[in-house]
Amino acid sequence: MTAVLLSVLALTLAAVALTRRRLLWGIAVLGVHSLVLAGLYFSLAAPDVALTEAAIGFGLVTFVYLLSIRRTGRIVVAAVECPGLLYPEGEGAVGLLWELLRELSTRTHRELELRWVERDEVQALLSTSEADLAAGDLIPSAAEAHFPEVEFLPTRIVRARLGPGPLGALRGSREAELLPKGGRLFPHRGALLSALERGELGGVVVNLLELRTMYLGGKLREAEVEPLEDTSFSVLFAPDEEELARTLEEVVAELRERGEWDDLVRRYL
């Protein structure tokens, strides 16, 4: 009877552990699971195995995991590449957002861990809490409206048409939702830009910042531009990171108060 109860308990714990969002919780629950397994071995007349499982499966494995993650102390950023806002350079990044994130990091005493991702991965990463926040070329789409967000820079989504042919946009973005029928979706900026260069596209649906980059890059010199929606760039947070969102809001507000915000915007944009 004990064995059956312990079995059910161990199964529940394993299922709970493996479906957690937070890694720390997963590891902690899995530690308890190991301990229950040790109890189960004991009740199955295997004291040697129980002892070894308790010392190694519970003790060492949990220790090693805890030592190797230290995720609790990190802010994992799902970063969507965007010139001016957040762009990879060496180990870190450059851009307006990078300044904001660094300020956030010093204020919360948590290290930053950047993970460069594509636009369409953001939703999955945030909803599983594999990333704490997402930033970069990011205007929340309708599907992402439920995440906590901090708007920091107004912009506008426009349709830029060069000639005949389908329009293109980034997959998973707000722009993609505004794309007229027959439009083409691209996994990342690079693919969009190279399709534009090859002349496969008649135009794009982009935000103003991206439009400016493309214009400066000489790709959209003679485009007809038509505004679609006024919106703003945001930083999105995982559902359980509302406090982090509030801190970022404070950071932005203070920068505005001190008048440093305009300097930053001028420097990077």
Partner: peptide, 30 residues
């Protein structure tokens, strides 16, 4: 890292299976 946790659970399962095969009804430890 989550994948490795999954692997850990799976190997624990194989071990438990073997221990279950060593047990006999009402048995004492060896």
């Amino acid at each position: 890292i989550w994948k490795l946790l999954g692997l850990n659970v799976a190997s624990g399962g194989a071990i438990l299976f073997l221990v279950a095969l060593s047990h006999r009804p009402g048995a004492r430890p060896p």
